[in-house]
């Protein structure tokens, strides 16, 4: 059962297309934290951000067979959140501060013409925020980026003990198991 948290994003996407709920759960577990923190910094309204993410994830599950996530899951997720945030800005009735920022930007900066480069930048910006997440979330994210690191290597990277790493991995597996209840029922009698 362990293999989900060692799967690459690419494998998760392909399992998701086959209707694998655990793969979906793992994507959620991996990305919810970064997506929330990224969205909240642009739109500091917790309920609104939660709604955006809820809609995004349910949309991914419902359209799992048809959506084109491509080979870059984070880029898909981050641009989806970006578009949803811009959509909310569009509906803001009162004069909001984003326009001031935009005006300022438009007068002082040259846009980045190359789309792939903009996406690369977006990924870098979102993932720079990972370091601020709670340790467990950060751990899960870092592990997904470094699938085959040993516990010791992860521990060194995050500057925590390897016992903590093991404990946290066990904990998150346990939580997952409880959540999935009967479907995930594991025995080693």
């Amino acid at each position: 059962m362990n293999h989900y948290n060692l799967s690459s994003d690419l494998e998760l996407v392909s399992m998701l297309k086959d209707g694998d709920l655990t793969a979906f759960t793992e994507i959620h577990r991996r990305y919810y934290g970064v997506l929330y923190s990224h969205a909240y910094k642009r739109l500091p309204d917790s309920e609104e951000v939660k709604d955006i993410l809820q809609e995004l994830f349910i949309c991914i599950w419902n359209n799992r067979e048809t959506i084109n996530i491509g080979s870059n899951l984070p880029a898909y997720l981050y641009t989806s959140v970006r578009n949803r945030i811009l959509n909310i800005f569009k509906h803001q009735k009162i004069e909001s501060d984003y326009i001031t920022s935009f005006l300022h930007f438009a007068h002082q900066n040259e846009p980045l013409a190359d789309e792939p480069f903009r996406i690369k930048e977006l990924v870098a910006i979102v993932e720079a925020e990972v370091s601020l997440l709670p340790p467990q979330m950060r751990l899960i994210f870092e592990m997904s980026r470094n699938s085959y690191l040993s516990h010791q290597e992860i521990a060194d990277k995050l500057n925590i003990s390897s016992l903590t790493v093991r404990k946290q991995i066990n904990n998150s597996l346990k939580i997952l198991r409880v959540k999935l209840g009967t479907h995930f029922f594991m025995l080693f009698f």
Binding site: Y40, R42, I85, A106, P111, L112, E115, L132, L133
Partner: peptide, 26 residues
């Protein structure tokens, strides 16, 4: 390109991410 480039630079000046609640939100 203009919208997306600006978005890359934009953060709300007063946003304080509630990091310690993230896990329960998740």
């Amino acid at each position: 390109a203009l919208v997306e480039s600006w978005y890359l630079k934009y953060t709300h000046p007063e946003a304080e991410v509630p990091y310690n609640e993230l896990e329960s939100f998740q």
